[in-house]
Design a protein around this nucleic acid. Structure first.
Lengths: 199, 199
DNA sequence: AGCCATCGTTGCATGGTCTGCAAGTTTGCG
DNA sequence: CGCAAACTTGCAGACCATGCAACGATGGCT
């Protein structure tokens, strides 16, 4: 899986912009930082900034709409004989591993969000988008309909809840626990809890 | 309680701006409407718009930071021998009565939010502000500390949950139920549920 | 290696949001 | 009536975000 130069450069620029935005906002606050500042720190033109992020907030949070599509495709790429829940677990595990690789930035992100509550709103809508994208992906995989069937939305929201729970525990552990492990654990707890329900 | 001319005019301008924003956005969508359009429709200068609302979104939603302060003062104004929960109930009841008076605009507001999901983010942060303002007000009233004591934040968030639950039921009833009644009912259900807990 | 199509970067121009400042008006009150 | 406070307005300016067109780098193909 060799990624071309072009692709690597793009990823580098995106991450440079995100990190520049994050660090600058951590230092000066959201209003103390302009898009021009961020572009300058990442060594690209201000115009290029908007080739990577739709808004300043998105750059600070590092939100990537392409990520939503990638998740959907990852789900589609899982073996067809796997149960949907198992496929979701597997996809989330990979995501968790990737996120865990940049442990360094997470404390900064949370501190920046804490200090600039405006960002919370953007985060919430992003999670909403993620849930909806995942729901359509599940519908695709199971041949159901997002609008009429309960399954896809329920599974997507549940899986989102699992990830957010794991993230919360990761945070409260000071990022010492292993995120993939926490994700697995959350799924297990959920499965056991559901199995114990009267039926 | 006679309100002066100045005060009445201000209220009229604010509500004219909100209603103008709401109706225009309902017609053309959030991006199809500029602040200038809204000001024009409300018959004030564009500059005056920003004397009333900090952002276009706030005008569309009708969010008023002064409202937060008013709620806090209303709580402070309740008799000291009243329990804090009773005081919160009373304050919310008054708010509910006021909100119920403009039944006409609520369907439009919800439709506009539905059609312009960007607004949800702003709403979320506004609710967060409201919760925090209420928590400090409770802390003030009970002589506790927002940062170290559990009580104020817990009561504030609970009371926020009650109001949002009532609002949700109001919406699903098509605004035929009485909002103040729904608020009361939510408090009652909560009280009964808590009383039934093992202790 | 060399050519070309594609993709990414950049500058420029533009429309819109929001703020600070310094007038001008209106309102409240003695 | 006349003053002080509050509200409105215009203007200038910073910043955000987008469309367009020119330019340069990349990757595939021969």
């Amino acid at each position: 899986m060799t990624t071309g130069l072009r692709e690597r450069k793009k990823a580098a620029t995106r991450s440079a912009l995100h990190e520049a935005a994050l660090r600058l906002v951590a230092e000066r606050g959201l209003d103390g930082v302009s898009v021009d500042d961020i572009a300058a720190r990442a060594d690209v033109s201000p115009r290029t900034f908007f080739n990577y992020f739709a808004t300043k907030d998105d750059a600070v949070l590092g939100l990537d709409p392409a990520e939503l599509r990638r998740t959907a495709q990852a789900l589609a790429g899982r073996p067809a004989d796997e149960s949907t829940v198992a496929a979701l677990r597997a996809v989330q595990r990979e995501q968790a591993e990737e996120m865990a690789r940049e442990t360094e930035l997470w404390p900064l992100r949370l501190q920046v969000i804490e200090a600039n509550p405006d960002l919370v709103g953007r985060l919430v809508t992003h999670f909403g988008e993620a849930d909806r994208a995942l729901a359509t992906a599940v519908a695709e995989r199971t041949g159901t309909d997002v609008d009429t069937d309960t399954l896809p939305t329920l599974l997507a929201l549940t899986s989102g809840a699992v990830m957010r729970t794991a993230l919360h525990r990761w945070l409260t552990s000071g990022f010492t626990d292993s995120l993939p492990r926490l994700v697995d654990e959350a799924w297990d707890v959920l499965a056991r809890g559901l199995a114990a329900l009267p039926h």
